[in-house]
Amino acid sequence: MASRTPLSVIDFCTIYPGETAGESMSRSVELARTAEELGYSRIWYSEHHNMATIASSAPAVLIAHIAAKTERIRLGAGGVMLPNHSPYVIAEQFGTLAELYPDRIDLGLGRAPGTDMNTLGRALRRDPNAAERFPEDIMELHGYLTGDSRVAGVQAVPGAGTNVPLYVLGSSMFGASLAAKLGLPYSFASHFAPTHLQQATTYYRENFEPSEVLSEPYVIAAVNVTAADTREEAEEQTRIVHRNRVRTMLNRQGHHLSDAQVDQVVDSPTGRQIIDMLKFTGVGTGEDAAEYLEKFTALATADELMVSFQAPGSQEAVHGMRLLGRAWGLDPADTAGAPGDWGL
Rank of each mutant, 00 (worst) to 15 (best):
101 Y>R: 13
200 A>T: 01
50 N>Y: 10
255 H>I: 11
20 T>M: 09
203 Y>P: 01
256 H>A: 12
36 E>A: 06
211 S>Q: 07
12 F>I: 07
278 L>N: 06
156 A>M: 07
144 Y>A: 00
127 D>Q: 08
51 M>H: 12
124 L>R: 09
265 V>N: 03
34 T>A: 15
2 A>S: 13
251 N>A: 15
189 A>Q: 01
263 D>R: 14
8 S>G: 06
338 A>G: 15
200 A>S: 14
329 G>M: 07
164 V>A: 10
131 A>V: 11
142 H>M: 09
336 A>P: 04
47 E>G: 04
44 W>V: 05
102 P>V: 06
177 S>E: 13
45 Y>N: 05
201 T>M: 04
196 H>L: 14
227 A>E: 00
199 Q>S: 15
103 D>M: 10
325 G>R: 02
191 H>N: 12
245 R>H: 13
230 T>M: 05
78 G>Q: 02
344 L>S: 12
185 P>L: 09
291 E>G: 05
311 A>M: 11
242 H>Q: 15
199 Q>V: 14
234 A>T: 06
201 T>K: 01
198 Q>G: 11
45 Y>V: 02
186 Y>N: 04
104 R>P: 02
79 G>A: 14
118 N>A: 12
44 W>A: 02
242 H>C: 13
105 I>C: 07
259 D>Q: 10
113 P>T: 13
212 E>A: 13
58 A>I: 08
222 A>M: 13
257 L>W: 07
